[in-house]
Write a protein that binds this DNA or RNA. Structure first.
Lengths: 194, 194
DNA sequence: ATCGGAAGTCAACAACTGTTGGCCAACGGC
DNA sequence: GCCGTTGGCCAACAGTTGTTGACTTCCGAT
């Protein structure tokens, strides 16, 4: 991730562009965010964005290449797995703007196939493996992880992107109390026959 | 909804435009769908779209002005409320293309504030009232409806827009069996204290 | 002091967008 | 058959977009 060559004089500008890009992509999504507005936010010329990141798609890919930072769940008591997961994601996307990278991806993934692909990869490489470590039958891991993702992404969508008032009104603690048991059930309850 | 004046000779074209618009908006979202591609799909000139629908925003509003067709839940046994709701929504958005209007809205709402507003209105005027008829304490109706919306929209997002393989693989019947109990709990389980 | 390259600015191109107005053809009541 | 109305197409405008290349300015090593 941090495979830096020799430190360059322009590192500050590069970082500033990336910060502005994350904010803009998060606010507007891939298509509506323009190189020009991102450059304006960063206080530099649009052509610098091209020079440092090649093109818009690559800038987006760089801005979105993040780590969910999922905790190691093997030490968590089995009854608290759901609450722990919900609490972690809430902490993750309620943080300061610029670090809400998951929302960047979510907003763009609805209309941009590249972003959707990033999200699927993130699910496959980060969420599914963690779920596999806490699930009884590994054969069911993918399905359970999918159900968990649907619940958590649905919550992020309704609370932070659609901003449904009924969900914005709830505190993080209340959300953990309400959604935690659902995730818990998706992780541990026996799957009903089809 | 069908407040038609005298039947015009161009009704067929108008309908064809609307059909093509729904398909395109569903596939690409508001911004990426262009008047030109919609017109091409409908086999007519872009200027006709303008003549019949005024502008792109109005065309979108018309294409998206739909009825969820939520069933009357007052006759459903209280234990089956969750399954009934999940089954209804699954039927609604697994149908033939052109009738998947909810997905049109969902895809665009992530990046377009107008679409998001439509979705909030639909939630407030269609989902919340129905939930209110089946909930014990009316004061909790909005919150319960919000949780239900988060779960159902999350499912639609992951299955039909992100196309997570783990969720695409499940049959509608399996999904009802897995997600139904969650919705049931959001509707009827006592809300934990904050 | 000077020279090379990096950092940054400016102006422009080509493609695409929503939108407009003018023009032609077909229809239908008189 | 005549003519106004309607349905439809074509070409163009104005704005925005990603992207490019030439030009200037600054800094650090020699």
């Amino acid at each position: 991730m941090t495979m830096s060559g020799p430190p360059r004089r322009s590192d500050a500008t590069r970082a500033e562009i990336l910060r502005a890009a994350r904010v803009r992509f998060a606010a507007d999504g891939y298509q509506r965010a323009t190189i020009r507005t991102i450059a304006a936010d960063a206080g530099i010329d649009p052509s610098m964005v091209m020079r440092y990141y090649g093109n818009k798609a690559n800038l987006f890919a760089t801005a979105v290449d993040i780590d969910l930072g999922l905790p190691d769940l093997t030490g968590v008591p089995k009854r608290r797995l759901g609450s722990a997961l919900v609490a972690h994601f809430l902490r993750r996307w309620e943080g300061d703007p610029g670090d809400r990278a998951l929302l960047v991806l979510l907003r763009s993934a609805a209309t941009d196939e590249t972003a959707a692909d990033h999200l699927r990869t993130m699910f496959r490489e980060q969420v599914a493996p963690v779920v596999e470590t806490v699930v009884a039958d590994p054969a069911e891991a993918a399905e359970r992880a999918g159900l968990v993702a649907a619940q958590l992404l649905g919550l992020a969508l309704c609370r932070h992107i659609l901003c449904l008032p009924a969900l914005v009104a709830l505190t993080p603690a209340e959300l953990v109390a309400r959604v935690g048991p659902t995730v818990q059930r998706y992780l541990t309850a026996p799957l009903p026959p089809s």
